[in-house]
């Protein structure tokens, strides 16, 4: 988000600059292409979460909580409240799942606040031309990995709560009754498929757009950049948190819908 330090001066060729910054660090061909940057930063943020979470959980103190423990307790309490308000069944998975989603998405989104040219700059120092993205949530693979997981859980909870027959009946008879069965199936399919698609696309779109705006700001003359990038970064803190929160809440809501009879 600050001036570009890459070998290329942004304003010389804006299209190429943006294309380079939106390209992933790739290995492989066709479907078997691996976005190493996405996997690396996804794993790094996950690892950071695990280490911090384990550190806090190991040194729990009911009487004298440390700062980090209080912070984590705050989030746990918050997630727990949301789950209890929306989800009326009992499942040991939902709350930890919601917590994981919230924290991981938040952390991955927060990578957006690092300068867009940081990786290219480090690559330059090492003498490599590095095209990589630091924000895993600007990659559809990450958002859809989570969205598909949630979708699988929706199907699992639906079948668990209503049985295969009950779930099938919902497909056939709702919302228009048994005389419009084909329409019902199409409607229900769209309804169910819209859930993971909207989950994944919403997060991806927001983060991708945010990243793009940072890139556009980086194209401007250096003396204008702070005037724009600072407010955008500050506003982005809200978006980061909000998107993590929305993903978590929608997950809870979808799963509780799956759990309940229609």
């Amino acid at each position: 988000m600050s001036e570009a330090h890459s070998a290329m001066v942004p304003s010389d060729n804006p299209v190429m600059y943006i294309q380079h910054h939106l390209a992933n660090w790739k290995v492989g061909e066709g479907f078997w292409t691996w976005h190493l940057d996405t996997i690396l930063f996804g794993a790094l943020t996950a690892l950071a979460l695990m280490i911090v979470g384990r550190m806090v959980a190991k040194n729990l103190s009911a009487d004298a909580p440390t700062g980090l423990q209080s912070f984590l307790e705050l989030i746990v309490e918050f997630v727990d409240t949301q789950v209890k308000e929306s989800f009326h069944g009992h499942s040991p998975l939902i709350a930890p799942l919601a917590l994981t989603i919230f924290m991981w998405v938040f952390l991955m989104n927060a990578m957006d606040l690092l300068p867009v040219d940081l990786l290219a700059f480090i690559g330059n120092l090492a003498g490599v031309e590095l095209h990589a993205k630091m924000v895993p949530t600007t990659d559809l693979n990450t958002t859809f990995a989570m969205a598909i997981s949630v979708f699988v859980l929706i199907v699992y909870f639906s079948i668990k709560a209503k049985g295969v027959l009950g779930f099938g009946k919902e497909f056939l008879y709702l919302p228009f009754g048994k005389y419009l069965m084909p329409v019902n199936v199409v409607m229900k399919l769209v309804e169910e498929l819209a859930k993971p698609v909207s989950l994944g696309m919403r997060l991806f779109g927001n983060m991708y757009a945010g990243e793009l705006i940072f890139l556009l700001i980086a194209l401007l003359p250096f003396w204008v950049q702070p005037l724009l990038s600072a407010p955008w970064a500050i506003f982005h803190i809200l978006i980061i948190t909000l998107q993590a929160f929305i993903f978590m809440i929608l997950t809870i809501v979808y799963l509780s819908l799956a759990h309940e009879e229609h």
Partner: peptide, 9 residues
């Protein structure tokens, strides 16, 4: 979307 999704999953 490609194999990366497997890693992220």
């Amino acid at each position: 979307v490609n194999a990366t999704i497997i890693g992220q999953l």
